[in-house]
Amino acid sequence: MEESHRYTFTAGLKAGTSIAIGYFPIALTFGLLAKTTGLSVIEATAMSILVFAGAAQYISLSLIAAGVSPAVIVINTFIVNIRHFLMTASLNEKMEPDAVWKKALYAFGVTDETFSVLATRKEDRIRTPFAAGVILIAYSSWVIFTAVGHRIGANLPLFLQAAMSIALYAMFVGLLVPSMKGNRKVVMLALTAALVNSLFYFTGWLSTGWAILAATLISAVFIEYVYARKGKS
């Protein structure tokens, strides 16, 4: 029992490594930008420790620099991160049942990236230690490299920075494609959400946070409806 626990936590760390790599340049740049915005290393790192949400943290820096009121920044953070509600609702179906305090604890670490890694696992039920491993390595990278970025006050060489900006998207692709093979429904789900999200993006009808939420929900419901009808006829 002890052995299998250790295994699943370690397997989680391993599965989360690609997130840690992807977070590295983003956290580094966040630390650097926080410094130029006038935050101390403690203040910048505290935000990464307490909030752990990449896009919202970046936006907060530009809003602080623009002198926007803190209340508005908090509301904006809520809007950007509301999509995680949908993700944790979905993840709850896949996680093993466990004590509520444990679930409340790892809920803190559900980001776009940790969710993607966990939700695309092949096994029916994900063990809590596995999720803890994925989240811990991702979170560590985010926090540590925020502090490092602020301390060294410099960025990666330009060519590497440009190259590494693809990392998280490449990871999303690497997680999606194996599920697409031989599964038309998965292809339709991804394609529909991609098209709807692109529509929102190019028309400017919704801001990014709402757009991802709406595109995901529209695709998940619509494709389910299509498949349910096909099943009946």
């Binding site: 979905s90 709850n92 695309t120 998207y169 692709v173 789900l189 991804a190 959400a193 991609a194």
Partner: peptide, 19 residues
């Protein structure tokens, strides 16, 4: 069923058009 669809839909929306 809809919740089970979310991961693949989310990935589509996270990748495109931002990539």
């Amino acid at each position: 069923n809809v919740l089970r669809n979310i991961p693949y839909a989310v990935l589509g929306a996270l990748i495109f058009p931002a990539i």
